[in-house]
Simulated assay, not measured.
Amino acid sequence: MDFDFKKNTLEGTYHANFSMGHEALGRWLLEEVGKDFEVIETLFVQIKLLKHSANEWTLIGNEMTLVLSAEEAIVQENSVLHQSDEEFEDGIDFYNEESISSCGLEDFEQMIESWKAFITRF
């Protein structure tokens, strides 16, 4: 998973660019975490606890939900959680590449560490 972070110094806004298939992770990071160091520290604590556990941990946000397990991190839009296949006409596939992303727990932890280091600099 490739990513990079940028800050628009004129507007004070942050941008997170992620490789194809991981775009939802970037949206989740900006929309649900942002510069909230309390959430970031909670993520580190949960990651540490999950590394030796068979449990899952869920963080439900305003727009997106994160599910962590010992193996992976999954981010998806809350609206995707409540849709069924019956809501779509036959022959029309729901495009969810930008609505759902997953990665290994170690990659997720490295991404959060990089994000924390980035926002601490600015």
Rank of each mutant, 00 (worst) to 15 (best):
M1H: 03
D2M: 13
D4C: 11
D4I: 08
K7D: 00
N8I: 14
T9P: 03
E11F: 13
G12M: 06
G12T: 08
A16S: 08
N17W: 07
F18G: 00
M20A: 09
H22R: 13
H22Q: 10
E23G: 02
E23R: 08
L25T: 06
G26W: 00
R27Q: 13
R27S: 05
R27N: 10
W28S: 00
W28Y: 15
E32C: 05
V33R: 02
G34P: 00
G34T: 00
G34M: 02
G34S: 05
D36S: 04
F37E: 08
F37G: 02
L43A: 07
V45Q: 14
V45F: 14
I47F: 04
I47Y: 08
K48L: 08
L49N: 14
K51P: 05
K51I: 02
H52W: 06
S53R: 12
L59R: 02
I60R: 12
G61A: 11
G61R: 07
N62H: 08
E63Y: 09
M64D: 10
M64G: 03
L66V: 13
L66M: 15
V67C: 14
E72L: 05
E72W: 04
E72D: 09
E72G: 00
I74R: 01
Q76W: 04
N78R: 14
N78T: 13
N78W: 14
N78I: 14
V80N: 03
V80A: 12
L81H: 10
H82T: 08
Q83P: 03
S84T: 15
D85H: 02
E86V: 05
E86K: 13
E86N: 11
E86S: 14
E87W: 13
F88I: 09
E89N: 10
E89Q: 12
D90I: 06
I92W: 11
F94N: 09
F94G: 05
Y95E: 15
Y95S: 10
N96C: 13
E98G: 15
S99H: 14
S101P: 10
S101E: 11
S101A: 15
S101D: 10
S102L: 12
C103F: 04
G104Q: 09
G104F: 06
L105D: 02
L105F: 06
E106H: 03
Q110A: 11
M111L: 15
E113S: 07
W115H: 03
W115Y: 05
T120Q: 15
T120D: 15
